[in-house]
Amino acid sequence: MSHGAIRLIEANCTSCMICARECPSWCITIDSHTEPIADLPPGARERTTNVLDRFAIDWSLCMFCGICVEECPFDALEWASDPVAAATRSGRLVHEIEDLTDEQ
């Protein structure tokens, strides 16, 4: 791979935090909360699921090591082919869920 961007497949992400913890540059920020699962059979105990609120990568810190892609147990991160585009303000190098799911 030649340092294309990293793409997020939101549907696969369970907010497990492994990528954020393994990232050596600390460039991944994740916020999540839990919600009860609806439509359980009657009498079943309440179960909850994680809901991803925020997934952000700060590309000004990322060194494209790919550890996050390798460590994700749910294949929610994958290499894209195009590099991340330049920006005129450093804040614009923080990409949120919408940008990350669109990385080409």
């Binding site: 907010s15 990232c23 991944i28 916020d31 839990t34 909850t48 809901v51 609120d53």
Partner: peptide, 24 residues
Amino acid sequence: ARAGIEWPGAKEPGGAPSRRRMVP
């Protein structure tokens, strides 16, 4: 620098308060 800023990995999945102590 590491000690001075909050580690993104300290949060728990689902945003629960951590029962374990996460230190990077």
